[in-house]
């Protein structure tokens, strides 16, 4: 099939960018979206035009590196699917595809479709861990954890930090990402000791990075490739207030 692409091109963070149109001829449905871009890039290189920069690594939906806004939807039209797992059979011959980077102040564009998500790491640094050093830990079976609890923790821990939730949220809010990490650790017995500190510090870090706040819209949940759900946001709201009250005493 033949497609028309409108791609955001931007040399670097300090130069303004613009949309550029490209033809993508002879695309086959078996290609992944990123393979389609590979093909376009090889053709651009042959023509002596700078190829389109985009982020990717595992190409199997787990590392969270890839991420494009495709026709206005973060990670494209298929639900619960990362950009690298999206295949061209989701498009038809003659389609125009608009491709943009994640847009958020805390995700500045580095080049073309590549953004800097260092803000996510800094949020984790503020408290997204259990403070145990290596060694000296009790036997793994010393503390039984109800299966239901560990299953929910796993649901939350499945987040791949791709940032699609931020990209899709009208307010560029990172609540889904942050709440998933808070939920993962705060629900487990191992995370109890630092429960309050964790949620307070992570929310502060999130605000300082310049993310928007949550007006409970739910676009984040709709685009999340790992189906992280809004309950975690609700849970974090509750835990935040509880933590403040507890600390106040």
């Amino acid at each position: 099939m033949n497609l028309k692409l409108r791609v955001w091109r931007q040399k670097n963070g300090s130069t303004p960018g613009k949309f550029v149109e490209y033809q993508a001829p002879n695309i086959v449905p078996e290609m992944s979206f990123l393979e389609m871009l590979d093909v376009v890039n090889e053709e651009l290189t042959r023509r002596g035009e700078d190829p389109i920069a985009f982020d990717h690594d595992c190409r199997e939906g787990i590392c969270g590196t890839c991420g494009l806004v495709i026709n206005g939807v973060a990670h494209g039209p298929l639900s619960a699917t990362t950009t690298c797992q999206l295949h061209m059979r989701s498009f038809k011959d003659g389609d125009t595809i608009v491709i943009e980077p994640w847009r958020a102040r805390p995700f500045p564009v580095i080049k073309d479709l590549v953004v800097d998500r260092g803000s996510f790491d800094r949020i984790i640094q503020s408290g997204g861990y259990v403070s145990v050093n290596t060694g000296g830990t009790p036997d793994a079976n010393a503390i039984p954890v109800p299966k239901t609890v560990s299953d929910v923790a796993m649901d939350a821990a499945a987040c791949i930090a791709c940032g699609a939730c931020v990209a899709a949220c009208k307010n560029a809010s990172a609540m889904l990402f942050v709440s998933a990490k808070v939920a993962h650790l705060n629900i487990l017995p191992q995370g109890q000791v630092e429960k309050e500190r964790r949620v307070l510090n992570m929310v502060t870090a999130m605000d300082e990075e310049g993310f928007g706040n949550c007006t409970n819209i739910g676009s984040c949940e709709a685009v999340c490739p790992k189906e992280i759900h809004l309950d975690f946001i609700s849970q974090m709201n509750r835990e935040y207030a509880k933590a403040l009250i507890k600390r106040g005493k």
Partner: peptide, 22 residues
């Protein structure tokens, strides 16, 4: 054997049985 202890203490959500053990 130490690895598993360490990971559990860090909050790695390994699969569990209904009894709460790994």
């Amino acid at each position: 054997v130490n690895i598993i202890d360490q990971c559990v203490a860090q909050g790695v959500p390994f699969a569990r049985e209904y009894g709460g053990l790994l």
